[in-house]
Every structure is written in C-alpha cells, then in structure tokens.
Design a protein around this nucleic acid. Structure first.
Lengths: 209, 209
DNA sequence: GTCTATAGCTGGATAGAC
DNA sequence: GTCTATCCAGCTATAGAC
C-alpha cells in the first residue's frame, strides 16, 4: 500500500497526521506511525527528530484544515454579514464532512494543553492570535450594521460560538448518536449537508432586530 | 489536605474521578491518582484491582452526572414537549456550569472507544441502550404533537443533537474562545446561565409549524 | 539513508515483609 | 490493610554498523 510517488518525508508526515488525528497525542505511538508509513522507526527521528516535532506539524495542518478558510472568510472586508455567514457555515460543513475526525482532535488537544501545561500553552498562542485578528474584522462589521439598525446587538464571542456549535458539535459526538440511532456515516454526512440552509437561516434570524 | 471523614475507598474513587476527568484515560496515571488520594499506589490495586476498573467506575459516574437527569426528563410521560425542553436545557446548563470538564471527557472517551476498540465498544452498549430507551418516549410524544398539527415534523436525532449542540459545545471549546476573548471562567458561566432562555426559545421556535 | 540493537525511562501490576 | 521493592511491558530516542 506504499505510495511510491511520494517522498519518504511526505509519507511519514501523512502517516503521522492520520495517526495523531485518530488517536490524539498520547494515543499515537511512533511505532504505529512508522508502520503506517511502511518505514523503520529510526527514520522518523532521522527526518523529524522527535514525536513532539511531528505533532506540531500535524496539529498545524489540522488547524489549518478546519480554520484556514474560516479565518480568511472572517477577515474578508468586501462581504456582507449575510454572505459571510453563508460562506462560513458552508465551509465548516464541507470541510468537516470531508474530515470528520478533526473537530475531536482539535478540541481535545487544545483543551488538554489548556488545562495541563502552563508552558505548552504558549505553543498555541499563535493560533489564538490568528483567530483574534480575523475576528476583529467581523466585529467592526457587526458594530456598523448594528448602529445602522440593520441587526440587533450581539455579543461577538457568543455569536461565534453559536455558529461553531451547530457546525462542529454533531461531528464531536456523532459516535454516540449514530450508534443510538443506527445511522451510517454516509447518511449522517448527507444529513449535515442538507441542514446547511437551516443552520444559516437560524443564525441570520438570530440577528434580526 | 486529606479528608479523614472519608473512607480510603471513597478517597481513592474521588481522586481517580478527578484525575480521569482532567486527563482522560491515557493521560491519567495511577501514580497521580495515588498521590491525589494521599495513599500508596499498591493500595489502588488492593481496593480496585486495575486502572481499567477504576476508569469504568469513574466513567459511569461522569456519564450519570451529565445524562442521569436528562434521561429521566426525556422518558418522563407527564410533561409537555415545551416543559420537557425547558427542563432539559436547564438541567444541561446547570450541571455543565458546575462540572465544565465533563463534556470534554465524555465526548473524547466515547469517541476514542468508538474509533479504536471494536471490543471495548461493547462496554458502552448499556449507555447507548439507556439513551435509546429514554428517547423513544420523546419520539412518540413528538409524533403525537405532529399528527395533531401542533408542531412541524422533525427528525429525532437532529432535534436531540440541536439541543446538545448549543448546551454542550460551548463547554467543549471554551478553552480556545475564552483565551481569544480573555473571558474568565466565572463570566463564561454567567453568560451560559443567562443564555438559557435564548436557547430554549430558539429550540421551541424550530418546532413551530 | 537505512537498519539493528539497545539504552533509558515510565507506567501498571504484584510479591512478600510487616 | 499498608508499605517497599521489584518485575515486566511498552515507549521514545540514539549509537553505530552498513
């Protein structure tokens, strides 16, 4: 199953990425990554030095898969609020149906670092800064629309979390509910895609004066 | 800091519970639990045999903290839909503001078992059964109201996930957003309590014909 | 660059003295 | 019941031959 069109570095990184996503930092073992990349363990260290280093790269890729386009959309200055929300929800659902394990991975790794490691927490500071910078653009847009009386005043953090809640949560606890209701993956994804409109409408409705 | 009013068994269980909640199964170490209970490691094995066994008890307690009352409310036959939803959202917010780490713990442990361990998955079957049994009561209620024309038809799983999304998600990713917006815990909890009404109204609105 | 062998550590579990 | 000492498995990481 070894993809010979890829370099060893790429194969390792792909294997590491999947292994971390599926098992989290602690659950992922260097042995598993090596086996998946069809390579010797010592090669991992030769190319990437340490597990921590591999994790950082994988985390960054994961963060970017979920938030990369969202951040661009948030900080976009030539889109109306309505267009933005539509595009953001669309982007969430599209990327998450394609990568359903990412929400769980991101949330739990961020939370773990947040609770445990005061030092390691610094590592995540850049990601928070990126979010913050993108978010201020949306904030000024919301303020402007509010002062014009087009929408009612909302708390920015609550507003953003509302959007994320409906888009992300279903992917976080799908394991439980899909089994309770015996719903296969493909049906679940289809449900999510069909509900996009509903999500968008509900969010827009919450902004009405 | 040892609480001498509790038996050794209780002290161990409390220590194990907190350690698992904060660190997850893999992150929690028997040594940490022992230290927290102010006790020798071998005592853990003497009283509870294995880490797995301690985890099962802790998980069950955690599940019950979040879903115990929710399950009772769901299967309650003498409550209107509206009363039920109000009580359920109220219960979620109350229990989660009191135990903000539980959603992260439950979701990630359930997900991990769901992905990895085909055998261990059986362990969670009883919890799914409890949910299923409670949920059928709500389902028949919803069907009755729909046939009377009081509410519009909804998909049961989607409906339940909508409720959980708004109640649970904020606690799952609060680490990220509280730091982005520099919001302390107490302010965050207060926000959640104040938003209960909004959540309830939005859910009820989604049922209107 | 790649492999084998192994160092060095950590964590769960137990034997055995008291 | 409680403690010390220790076993053993599993993990990351590296030394060194090729």
């Amino acid at each position: 199953m070894t993809d010979t069109t890829k370099t060893v570095e790429e194969r390792i990184l792909d294997a590491a990425y999947m292994t971390f996503i599926e098992n989290g930092y602690e659950g992922a073992k260097m042995r598993d990554i090596a086996a998946r990349a069809d390579i010797n363990i010592s090669m991992l260290h030769y190319y990437y030095r340490s597990k921590d280093n591999l994790f950082d790269i994988a985390f960054s890729r994961a963060f970017d898969s979920v938030y990369g386009n969202i951040l661009k959309l948030l900080s976009e200055k030539n889109m109306s609020i309505k267009e933005k929300i539509t595009a953001i929800v669309d982007e969430y659902i599209t990327s998450l149906t394609a990568n359903p394990l990412l929400p769980g991975f991101l949330v739990s790794e961020i939370t773990k670092n947040d609770i445990r490691d005061r030092e390691a927490r610094q590592k995540f500071a850049p990601y928070r800064t990126m979010l913050f910078d993108a978010v201020v653009v949306l904030e000024s847009q919301l303020k402007e629309e509010t002062s014009k009386g087009n929408i009612r005043p909302v708390n920015l953090m609550e507003f953003l979390m509302d959007i994320e809640s409906v888009c992300m949560y279903p992917f976080l606890n799908r394991g439980l509910w899909q089994r309770v209701f015996d719903v296969p993956d493909e049906v679940f994804n289809q449900m999510m895609r069909e509900r996009k409109e509903t999500f968008i409408n509900n969010i827009l409705k919450s902004l009405e004066v």
